[in-house]
Structures are given as C-alpha cells and as structure tokens.
Design a protein around this nucleic acid. Structure first.
Lengths: 222, 222
DNA sequence: AATTATATTTTGACTAATCAAAATACTAGA
DNA sequence: TCTAGTATTTTGATTAGTCAAAATATAATT
C-alpha cells in the first residue's frame, strides 16, 4: 500500500513525463514540483525504488515502473474526476478545485470513484480540458500546443490551461480563455512578444508570450 | 493544525462522551475505539494536551477542551454529511459508508463541505438517524423514548433505565440492557404485551411492556 | 585542463505515530 | 489489610517523511 506522499510523488512524476515527453525526471524537478528539498526527494526516490514504484538512476533521475505508472494514472483519474465533480455538481470556482482535489484524491476509494464516475455520466475531459484516464489506465493524448506556437491567421480551440496559479486561472476565465472556446489569431509580433486574439463575436484580446505559452490549443476553423 | 490522527482521537472521544454522557473517557476505552495499544493512547493524550486539544488526568482519562470539542464536532459534521452524500447521491450500500466517510472526512475542506451541505438540502440527520451537528457546532440531541414505542424491525440503542429498583437494574444488567447496547426489535405483540429483542450477536431477549416502558432508547442502525 | 557553477547525494537531526514489554498504580475480593 | 488482578504508564525501538548543511559529482566556461 502506498502512502499519500508516495501517491503524490508518482502522480507528479507521471505528469512531467506526459507533458515533457521525457523518460527520466531529474531529482531537482521532482523536488521542485513537490515542494521539498532536493535531499528529501533523493531519499524518497530510494525508498520508492525499494518498494518497486520507480526506477532510480543516481545523478540522472527517476522513471515509473509498470506498477508505479498504474497507480499514478489512477491518481490522475481520481484528481480529474474530482475536479469535474467539484465544478459540475457543487459549483465550485474553477480556481479553487485543484487544491481541493489534491486532498480528496488520496481519500476516495475505488468503489466511491466508480459511483462518482457513473453519477457524472462518465466524462472524458475535466474542466481544464485535460483528458481523464480510463479505469483501465488509458489516457488519451491530445496533440495540442501552446498558443504561442500558432501562426498569424490560424483558428484555434482552447484545450487546456497549463498553469495552476490561482490568479492566472481567474484571469483566464474572465477573458473567456476556457477549454472549448474558439479564437482567431489576428496578430503576432515576435519583437513585441505579443499575440492578439479575436473571438467569433469580435472581441479582441492581447496576450504576452509568457501567458500564451501556458495555454494549449488545437488548430480549428476560425 | 491538527493531523488526521488527532482528528480521529477527538471525534471518538466526543462520540463516547455524547453516548455515555460521561465527563472523562478512560485511556483504555480510547485505545480500544481507536484500535491502538494503551501505551500509544497515553502518549497521544500527552501530546494532545500539550497542543490544547484535551485535558489529560493521569490514571483517570481525558476530556475535550473547548477548542478540542469544536474540532470534534466539525469532524462529526463532516462524517455524517459525507455518509448522507454517499447514500443519497451515490447510492452506496449502508454497510460501506462508514469506512468511506472515515477517510474522506479528513480531506474535505470547510468550503467544499458547505457546498455539499447545500447540494444535499441541508439535512439534519444522517442515514443512521444520527443528528448532524450544525456549522456552528450545535448538535441536536434526539429525545429518547421507551422501547415499547418502537416499531418492529427498528434498530435501537439503549440510552437509560428509568427505574431505580435494585432488582430491575440487576436484571437489566444481566440481560445486557445497558446504555450503549444495541438491539434490533425482532418482534412486537400488542395482544401478548410482549417485545422481542435481538443483540447483534444473535442473543434473544423477551420483555413485557411493563419493563419495556422503563427502558429509554434511541433509534439507530441495527 | 583548470576552475567555477550547478545538481545531487550524504549526514545528522527532528517530529508524529506506533508497538511490545516491563514497571507501576489502583481496585476489589478474601 | 493484604493480595491478586486489571488498567495505565514508561521505556526503548521502529518507520515515514522531512530539513539544513556539508560533501561530492557533473557540466560549463575560460
């Protein structure tokens, strides 16, 4: 049985490998996303390797074993289903759900999760637009990319917001930068580090690259 | 901030003081309900006293401080609201909800709890019939009533014995008719003026109405 | 290649929670 | 009152998870 600390480590390692498409995650990064000192991450890596959750390559990083990946996917499923529940059923604010789900995901049993999934109508995407892994651990990977990588004139549909920062999420929602929303990229100035978006209704929006990188989108008809 | 272990100790101490109407709970009982060794309960008592959750009287027992009682009531509220949710909304089986709520109660925030309460229509009793403490920490005590007034099939928990007659008290104790004891009413014959009770262990007990009127009980799960 | 900077690991220490088993205090019966 | 039995506390040890700071390895720069 994994402790909830172990569950957190596994989930974060999975998210990094999915997002950055790397095989091994360096210890520094593990320490950073989990908010612990590097030494702590190293000692956790050792005990998690001892228990068969991960493989640990000294001075290089860690990767998930089959067993570890399975649990990590289960945690991601819990997290995203809970976020969906918190928004859809309880009406919580978008910006609050991450923290709440972070706690609940360790306490909810497989049985309750299944009931919840059924109650929610077996959703396949969470409120951020991120895919919810199936019960069997299959996760649908989207070929979405940051807004900053689209060309001028392209039509895009927002898929997800990468950043979990409360203020940024709040701003995003205020600006209709939410999953499913469609925009046209009307301007792109590399020198000015700025992108201009336009909604189908004609509303104009300006974003810096720093922000545009945090918003993933798929190409679509404008 | 209390750890979830501390939350569990507080909640169990509260439940005992409510059910048995005592001021101090002996360490042996604390150890038993929490499933730990007596030594563990003692050392927890000391550290919880240090942190102001309880008062610890060596060789006697513990009682809740104002701060401890407040948190204990909040835990009881969480627990009972969650049980209600699990039964009413997700349709879990009655026999499963306790264990599930036991885990979730430590992970759910005040904010989510309020939303859940609202979603459930602010219920005042949980599926077992136990009262749900209000947000402000007020718990409605159920008015107990004589055994003779329950219906056949009801689950009851003995609250008190009205009669002070020595012989009757002796008989009551021999028959396990003591506060806290749980029975199911398996038979009720108005004509024969008789009630049949059954303990969880299957022991059968017959009482006449004259006696049944002297025993006060609360509804509870059988 | 030598030096500097950065990332990682080690070491030693700490807290919370637990157990087993020995020691102690209390209680009830003879 | 003395003793036997029960309840409680102590003691010493263990595990998980953490930090700070020193030590070490690797990478980058001159």
């Amino acid at each position: 049985m994994a402790t909830s600390t172990v569950e957190n480590y596994l989930k974060e390692i999975l998210v990094i490998t999915l997002e950055e498409d790397v095989a091994k995650v360096p210890m520094g990064q593990v320490a950073k996303v989990l908010g612990v000192t590097p030494g702590t991450a190293t000692s956790m890596a050792k005990s998690m390797e001892r228990d068969g959750w991960i493989r640990y390559f000294p001075r290089v990083g860690v990767s998930l074993t089959k067993k570890g990946r399975k649990l990590a996917l289960s945690m991601l499923r819990r997290h995203r289903l809970l976020e969906t529940f918190l928004v859809e059923t309880l009406g919580l604010d978008w910006s609050e759900i991450h923290v709440e789900a972070e706690e609940l995901e360790h306490a909810i049993s497989e049985k309750v999760l299944e009931k919840l999934d059924e109650f929610l109508g077996r959703p396949r995407f969470d409120p951020h637009g991120d895919p919810i892994p199936s019960k069997g651990g299959v996760i649908q990977q989207l070929a979405s990319k940051p807004l900053s990588e689209f060309k001028k004139g392209a039509g895009v549909r927002i898929e997800s917001i990468v950043d979990q920062d409360k203020e940024f999420l709040h701003f995003a929602r205020k600006s209709a930068l939410v999953p499913g929303q469609i925009f046209k990229i009307t301007g792109k100035e590399d020198c000015a580090d700025a992108i201009t978006l336009k909604t189908p209704k004609g509303k104009i929006l300006n974003l810096g690259y720093r922000s545009a990188e945090k918003i993933l989108a798929l190409p679509c008809e404008a």
